[in-house]
Design a protein around this nucleic acid. Structure first.
Lengths: 141, 141
DNA sequence: CTCCATGCAAACACTTTGCATCAAG
DNA sequence: CTTGATGCAAAGTGTTTGCATGGAG
């Protein structure tokens, strides 16, 4: 639950327009505990009676991703999800293969060691990674 | 480069038919160092003048995935890739965001510790994970 | 007033489904 | 023979593009 106002302010400060659609999409993403897909965002805005066009949502997500406000998450569903990058804790996701529940998992040390090894052995400079877990949540076991 | 014959034999032993298409798809997957997408497989078979229908390839991959012969890889491309699960080394992939090169990366200890933590803290039973690295390969840096 | 942002429709890419036919064992 | 595998066409889903219009600053 990152504060949407601070995000909008920083966008304004870097010379970007704050349109109604931009505001709504950012608020939707900030208000969610789990990564949202395009259709999730569209449905949520529709429910709030502030519909935004599908194309606009796609373009907005592309913009926010480029600005490093959000990042792309792929949970092997055949569609992309997005979540706000909150400066605090870097985290990953655990997806229940039975009930589809998505749980965020914070991790401290994380993959630093593995990435270091990649750099040493293969001269590959890692800029990002994706790590998702699949299995059974406590209710579905 | 797993041996396609041993895979086909084990499929036969478990009562599955060895059709021409099945043989060709398994061979294509076994012959590749990187995970293949459906279109890669189709193109390769076409080049070898042994075309198989697109639908058949999709269905065959679904089958092989269910049989745990191959597994699904998602490199954030908007399509799925598949690779043979070879019993030896569990590995991940490093994708160059500039030249799209895909490199396999073997990892020993791997994520055992992280998965253990997930189980302890969240009672989540991990059955699989996906871990991919994105960045710049040694030629593109 | 000037651009960037928006909506709509159409195009695209990837994947799935229904159904009649085929072929492995 | 019998049942699972195949091909084709059509439909489904998620995403992108072209173009004319609209609105933020």
């Amino acid at each position: 639950m990152t504060d949407s106002r601070s995000i909008l302010k920083s966008l304004k400060d870097t010379g970007h327009r704050i349109t109604q659609s931009r505001k709504l999409v950012v608020e939707a993403l900030c208000g969610s505990k789990v990564p949202l897909a395009v259709l999730d965002i569209l449905a949520q805005l529709k429910r709030r009676r502030s519909a935004v066009n599908k194309t606009t949502v796609y373009r907005e997500l592309e913009f926010l991703n480029k600005e490093k406000i959000i990042r792309e998450i792929d949970l092997l569903e055949g569609k992309k999800r997005y979540e706000v990058i909150h400066s605090a804790a870097h985290h990953h996701h655990a997806v229940c293969v039975k009930c589809q529940m998505i749980q965020c998992v914070e991790m401290e040390n994380d993959l630093f060691e593995l990435e270091q090894r990649l750099s040493d052995r293969h001269r590959f400079k890692v800029t990002s990674h994706s790590l998702e877990f699949f299995g059974l949540c406590k209710d579905c076991q």
